[in-house]
Amino acid sequence: MIRIERLNKYYKRLHALKDIYLHVREGELFSYLGPNGAGKSTTIRILTGLTRPSSGKAFLNNFHIEKDRVKAKEQCGFVPQSINLDQELTVFENLNIHGALFHLPRRKRKRRIDELLEYIGLSDRKKTLVKQLSGGMKRRVMISRALVHSPKILFLDEPTVGLDAGIRRRIWALIKKIQQNGTTIFLTTHYIEEAEFLAQRVAFLDEGEIVAIDAPQVLMSKLGSWAIDKIMEDELETVYFSQREDAKQYIAGQEESFTLRRVNLEDAFLSLTGKKPK
């Protein structure tokens, strides 16, 4: 559904994306994980037509993003990182403009908007000005706006950034629901637990390069199942074990304070890049 071949992007001397190869399957929920400045947003911006690639090819549902730009754009919906709704317009007006931009006939547009507002639980806010909505509501409106034209692919660029835990989980449930309806989802995030909870496959991106791609469980299992964190002066050191009993045995012989926990995706990311994904 999404195919990227040797994609490169330079910003003057900065090599922001380095020979990216990627294939996202139809109906998959794929997550792109990496620290700030790793190139996550750049990839999404190239795929959605906002940024020009320096070299390489990318296809959305077999349409070349540069040569068949208009057709490629028809395949996807995009939820950018920053809120880009018209604050002075109502929720309905924002969604209606999007539908018109994607050439939906007026009646179909109206019906689809009603369905979507019901879907995201904001039917009663249809005529509310966007500036009067909370941050979480604006995010939900942005997601529903990207779905007005029923795209085959949905790009979500840090969809829960700046939201509190409760609202974040509500948005996760919405994203899962969208994927279950058959939409391919390409999600960038720097929230490890978000990728772990949502994604079927994850790509770790570091300094413009993909360092690993696999299912979260596979990436984590390479380290083991259990982890012990121990504080060594200013640093936190983590040791991994396959069996819980082995980990307990390791603690038993030592005097420092330890935390025993399950291995998570952050461990996998750290072991591959040496960095925290923030």
Partner: peptide
């Protein structure tokens, strides 16, 4: 950033 909405539209 509303211009991005136009840029991403077909």
């Amino acid at each position: 950033h509303i211009f991005e909405e136009f840029q991403a539209a077909p």
